[in-house]
Design a binder for these strands. Sequence first.
DNA 1: GCCCGTTTTTATCATTTGTAAAATTTTTTG
DNA 2: CAAAAAATTTTACAAATGATAAAAACGGGC
Lengths: 187, 187
Amino acid sequence: MEIDEILECFHPLPPQSRAALKAYITEVQFPKGHTLIRAGRVEKTLYFIRSGIVRAYSDGARGDVTFWFGKEGDLVVSMKSYVSGQPGYEHIETLEACDLYQMRAQDLEGLFAGDIHIANWGRKLIGQELIKTEERLISMQFKTAQERYLDLMSAAPDLLQRVQLCHIASFLGITQVSLSRIRAEIR
Amino acid sequence: MEIDEILECFHPLPPQSRAALKAYITEVQFPKGHTLIRAGRVEKTLYFIRSGIVRAYSDGARGDVTFWFGKEGDLVVSMKSYVSGQPGYEHIETLEACDLYQMRAQDLEGLFAGDIHIANWGRKLIGQELIKTEERLISMQFKTAQERYLDLMSAAPDLLQRVQLCHIASFLGITQVSLSRIRAEIR
DNA sequence: GCCCGTTTTTATCATTTGTAAAATTTTTTG
DNA sequence: CAAAAAATTTTACAAATGATAAAAACGGGC
């Protein structure tokens, strides 16, 4: 997914503002298994995924728990670091070789302060992220694990092919054994 | 909580911009049990809570499920309506007599387009909401119901006095019976 | 202070989910 | 292609949670 398409899909930007944004964006590659963001740090870099898959996870009482997958076109950022300047609680690692667009949070901050179109673009971008997070929270509270699995299957069937089931299970809030049971029932 | 304090606590605003915002804000009162926001509609009003408590809920397979409580200083809005212009999925009702600051989404939109300070204030505001939602999602995935109850007790002890336990239980993602068991264990 | 309706707790049993370990399948590597 | 490693499924049992019903506690109005 090319950078112009990614930037536009959140909110339209005047060509001049888009050019200003792009001036601060560079492209980077990382192999599978690379850690982009570390928990407990104030992370100062944002990424957009050109290609590949990443996951955000945190160390709980029972091993690591994945709470987000990012794929093509998605924004990758330690939200807590970025929004509040405090250490984040998630690690983010690549699950495949990834091609990313990279940007420094500080540069983005400068653009927000000086360009009202970029400020409103950023506002919309955060809003979209909020909706997604809210939807996940509601699905955790309202739906059974089986429903959440079926939802994931229809929303992102490719994920099931590309990601290990232990990560899918913790993402769904269940153990791998429970996920196996669900998969067996559906078959 | 007075309006100036509420507006400032998200992000500082120049006096001129704050005055521009306040020009569109009116104060309203509602009795206990009043519905502020209805699911399935595109809601066009935002509120800040001056005093009182509200809850957001949605109708699931097993009755209504509360997924958010709002109290003094909090923003009350149908996020999906506000961010994407689509019908929201939550009802929001007052659990006590409430004193609210009211604003039309359309007016706010106009301010965002014309005042960069307000646009960046709005961006920060949404960011704060995102962090809160993300924290709740993580606590749902990482913690047991008992841990979530203890967290709620220390974060918002007044809520337990002011809100029915059936709402607390569904907020925690468990039945009222389970919540009673947890409360009995702790005692 | 007492009554009535509501809210909360308790008790019982059925169901779901978790834990641990073994068996199976798939993937990687030489 | 075969052996080894990793990932996934299955099994058996234990623990946690849910459903239902009934009892107890609480609160507002008179």
